[in-house]
């Protein structure tokens, strides 16, 4: 199921006060949406914590935009788009990865070519399909109210798998992020981990599209991680804050969406942005407060006041 029913949407639209919130939370479709948002938001934040440091933000954005082509293919073939989306995203991610590695062009330019072209093909194909014109809005901006229990099971398994993989390979992932050769010399199977991470990121982008839509998907990956980056001085804490912020903001954003009948994706992203601004404020206050700031160690001769040479 991709779209909410008209009854459900209408029901959501009239509820704006506390009692209405309770009624809203009593609705099975809303319960599923909130659980889905919590899980996908946490996943986005968790994966984003590495994606942002590896400068894969634009990669996730390109993947999200290109996913529209996968959905279109599913519709053309008469297959549930959700079933097509995950394998499409994985294959597409691997192809882009190969293209970036083998081409001598800058990665951002290549990603731009790939995502704008696939988006163009998808929009042209969708415009030819009379029956699906009404659904474009949900594809672009997300509508998580249509999420079903099997979808939640898939996302929960994915979150568990991502948690176990990232916990066990945390050191390898960080070393890989810092320096490929340092990681390789240390015995990290760099190519294997790089590929595994890209596949995981592609799957997370694919499953999160239902919540946030193809246009705003990268926000799920980027914003919570950037907020976590501002607040953390330990890597596991950074991952925890990113995942928690991702899940928490998605939950809050979906509630706002449910109460106001606004599209879920933009609501979640606006809440995420508010969380980011709060993190920015907290990090600035920490910098200015001598009691909280970490004392500077002895400086190497020649180091500039900012600590860089």
């Amino acid at each position: 199921m991709w779209c909410p029913t008209a009854t459900n949407t209408a029901l959501v639209g009239v509820m704006v006060d506390g009692a209405a919130l309770a009624m809203l939370l009593d609705q099975p479709f809303m319960q599923r949406a909130l659980i889905g948002g919590l899980l996908t938001g946490s996943l986005g934040g968790l994966l984003g914590s590495f994606a942002v440091l590896r400068q894969l933000s634009f990669f996730s954005d390109a993947l999200g935009h290109s996913a529209l082509l996968g959905i279109t293919l599913g519709l053309l073939l008469g297959i549930n788009p959700t079933l097509v989306l995950i394998p499409f995203a994985v294959i597409f991610a691997l192809l882009i990865n190969q293209l970036v590695q083998r081409s001598r062009l800058p990665a951002d330019a290549l990603l731009n070519i790939v995502y704008s072209t696939s988006l163009a093909f998808a929009v042209v194909a969708l415009s030819l399909m009379e029956t699906y014109r009404g659904g474009i809005h949900q594809l672009l901006f997300g509508d998580i109210l249509g999420i079903a229990w099997p979808d939640l099971a898939v996302i929960a398994i994915l979150l568990l798998g991502a948690l176990v993989y990232l916990a066990l390979s945390l050191r390898a992932q960080v070393l890989l992020t810092l320096n490929d050769d340092l990681a390789g010399a240390f015995g990290v199977r760099a190519n294997w981990h790089r590929l595994a991470f890209i596949i995981l990121l592609a799957v997370v982008v694919a499953v999160s599209i239902k919540a946030v839509g193809v246009l705003l998907i990268s926000a799920f990956v980027v914003i919570p991680a950037c907020a976590g980056r501002l607040l953390s001085r330990r890597f596991p804490v950074y991952m925890l804050i990113s995942g928690t912020l991702g899940g928490g903001c998605a939950l809050l954003g979906l509630l706002v969406s449910g109460l106001t009948n606004l599209p879920s994706g933009p609501c979640v992203v606006i809440v995420q942005f508010a969380g980011f601004m709060l993190a920015l404020l907290v990090s600035q206050v920490r910098c200015w407060s001598p009691a909280i700031a970490v004392p500077a160690g002895p400086r190497t001769p020649g180091a500039d006041p900012a600590g860089r040479e």
């Binding site: 001085r233 970490v294 001769p301 020649g302 600590g307 860089r308 040479e309």
Partner: peptide
């Protein structure tokens, strides 16, 4: 307790 990114080149 310093962050790696806060260090000078020599450090």
């Amino acid at each position: 307790e310093r962050l790696l990114s806060e260090l000078s080149g020599g450090q």
